[in-house]
Amino acid sequence: MSTTTVPPHVRLANEVAVQFAHQPFEVAAAAVATHLRDFWEPRMRAALLAHVASGGEGLDPMAVRAAELLRPAA
């Protein structure tokens, strides 16, 4: 089974976010959002948004912000 109990969309979003952490927060969050829009299947983005809506436990703040940026398009 999976090696972690963290949901895949949370783990993967955090892994993307950390790669942009050296940039200014808003710039980085926009880059993360673009990445998720370009490469994530809609149900994964929906799962991420749902996770944020339910409190976003375990989610990097930048991933939370990226999810917010995705919301209008979701």
């Binding site: 370009d38 299947e41 994964m44």
Partner: peptide, 17 residues
């Protein structure tokens, strides 16, 4: 819209979608 990657397919298989 992009589709599922292989690891996403595995995760989605386990979650039933």
């Amino acid at each position: 819209e992009p589709g599922l990657r292989i690891p996403n397919m595995f995760d989605s298989a386990i979650d039933g979608s």
